[in-house]
Amino acid sequence: MDVFMKGLSKAKEGVVAAAEKTKQGVAEAAGKTKEGVLYVGSKTKEGVVHGVATVAEKTKEQVTNVGGAVVTGVTAVAQKTVEGAGSIAAATGFVKKDQLGKNEEGAPQEGILEDMPVDPDNEAYEMPSEEGYQDYEPEA
């Protein structure tokens, strides 16, 4: 019985440690998101679009440190934060509304985080759909 109880105690310690790591990862992701939003706020009209992409990228980098179902929630929060940063930029006159959601080359930025393969159960990952990809044929 002692062996059984000791095993359960060790398992509990492992769960607590994993929860603490997840909590730490979420806190880091939130900190990076805040950094990115402050970065966007300090940019001029020309830099705002690039700044919004930076927020998304920093958040995406930190999301990889967070495991399990938390990833889905962090990704949703990050996307809403990026959308909010863009709205703030438009409201303050840093950028025109028609410039939001495009990178410096004018290509749409939507789907940055949505296409990231995420499995809350950590069982399997699927690649994003290939609808947006084109076949590449090298020139002879």
Rank of each mutant, 00 (worst) to 15 (best):
M1W: 00
M1T: 15
M1P: 00
D2T: 02
V3E: 01
M5H: 00
K6V: 02
K6P: 00
K6Y: 02
K6F: 03
K6D: 12
K6W: 03
G7P: 04
L8F: 13
S9F: 07
S9N: 09
S9T: 07
S9E: 13
K10V: 03
K10F: 06
K10S: 03
K10G: 05
K10C: 01
K10W: 01
A11C: 10
A11M: 15
K12F: 10
K12I: 00
K12G: 01
E13C: 10
E13W: 13
G14Q: 08
V15Y: 06
V16F: 14
A17G: 03
A19G: 07
A19M: 09
E20D: 10
E20T: 11
K21R: 03
K21H: 15
T22L: 03
T22G: 03
K23F: 05
K23C: 01
Q24R: 06
Q24K: 15
Q24T: 14
G25F: 06
G25W: 12
V26I: 12
V26E: 00
V26A: 05
V26D: 00
A27Q: 09
E28H: 06
E28N: 13
E28L: 11
E28Y: 12
A29W: 07
A30P: 00
A30M: 03
G31E: 01
K32D: 01
K32Y: 04
T33L: 11
T33C: 15
K34S: 13
E35H: 14
G36T: 07
V37I: 13
V37F: 07
L38S: 02
L38C: 07
L38R: 09
Y39V: 11
Y39Q: 10
V40M: 06
V40A: 10
V40F: 11
G41C: 08
G41Y: 15
S42L: 01
S42A: 05
K43F: 04
T44L: 12
T44M: 07
K45A: 03
K45W: 11
E46W: 04
E46Y: 07
E46D: 13
G47L: 14
G47Y: 12
V48W: 13
V48R: 13
V49M: 11
V49Y: 03
H50G: 11
H50K: 11
G51D: 02
G51V: 14
V52S: 06
V52L: 00
V52Y: 04
A53F: 00
T54Q: 02
T54P: 03
T54V: 01
V55K: 03
A56K: 15
A56V: 12
A56R: 05
A56W: 03
A56P: 00
E57D: 13
E57G: 12
K58W: 13
K58F: 06
K58C: 15
T59G: 04
T59C: 07
T59S: 04
K60E: 03
K60C: 02
K60V: 06
K60M: 03
K60S: 02
E61L: 10
E61V: 07
E61F: 05
E61S: 08
E61M: 04
Q62N: 09
Q62K: 15
Q62I: 15
V63G: 06
V63L: 04
V63P: 00
T64L: 13
T64S: 10
N65F: 07
N65M: 01
N65Q: 03
V66G: 04
G67L: 06
G67N: 05
G68L: 10
G68P: 08
G68C: 11
G68M: 08
A69R: 14
V70L: 11
V71T: 01
T72C: 08
T72H: 09
G73L: 14
V74F: 07
V74P: 10
T75G: 08
T75A: 05
A76G: 07
A78K: 10
Q79R: 11
Q79I: 02
T81I: 12
T81P: 02
T81G: 06
V82Q: 06
V82T: 15
V82P: 01
V82F: 06
V82M: 04
V82R: 15
E83T: 13
G84M: 09
G84S: 13
A85F: 11
A85W: 05
A85N: 02
A85Q: 09
G86T: 10
G86C: 09
G86R: 11
G86V: 13
S87H: 10
S87E: 07
S87N: 04
I88A: 04
I88T: 01
A89N: 01
A89D: 06
A90H: 14
T92W: 10
T92Y: 09
G93C: 04
F94R: 15
F94L: 04
V95P: 03
V95L: 09
V95R: 03
V95M: 09
K96C: 09
K96Q: 02
K96P: 05
K96S: 13
K97Q: 15
K97P: 03
K97C: 12
D98V: 12
Q99K: 07
Q99S: 01
Q99C: 09
Q99N: 05
Q99Y: 12
L100S: 01
L100R: 05
L100F: 14
K102V: 13
N103C: 08
E104F: 14
G106Y: 10
A107F: 04
A107V: 01
P108A: 11
Q109C: 13
Q109K: 01
E110R: 10
I112K: 07
L113Y: 12
L113D: 13
L113H: 07
E114L: 06
D115E: 08
D115T: 12
D115F: 13
M116L: 06
P117R: 13
V118T: 14
V118D: 03
V118H: 07
V118P: 13
D119I: 15
P120M: 06
P120D: 04
P120H: 12
D121R: 09
D121N: 08
D121W: 14
N122H: 08
N122S: 14
E123K: 01
A124I: 02
Y125N: 10
Y125M: 03
E126C: 07
E126I: 04
M127T: 04
P128R: 07
P128T: 12
S129E: 04
S129H: 02
E130Q: 03
E130C: 12
E131C: 14
E131D: 05
E131N: 05
G132A: 12
G132Y: 08
G132Q: 02
Y133Q: 06
Y133F: 04
Q134A: 07
Q134K: 13
D135H: 02
Y136G: 08
Y136N: 13
Y136D: 02
Y136S: 04
E137G: 09
P138N: 12
P138H: 12
E139Q: 09
E139C: 03
E139T: 05
A140V: 11
A140E: 06
A140W: 14
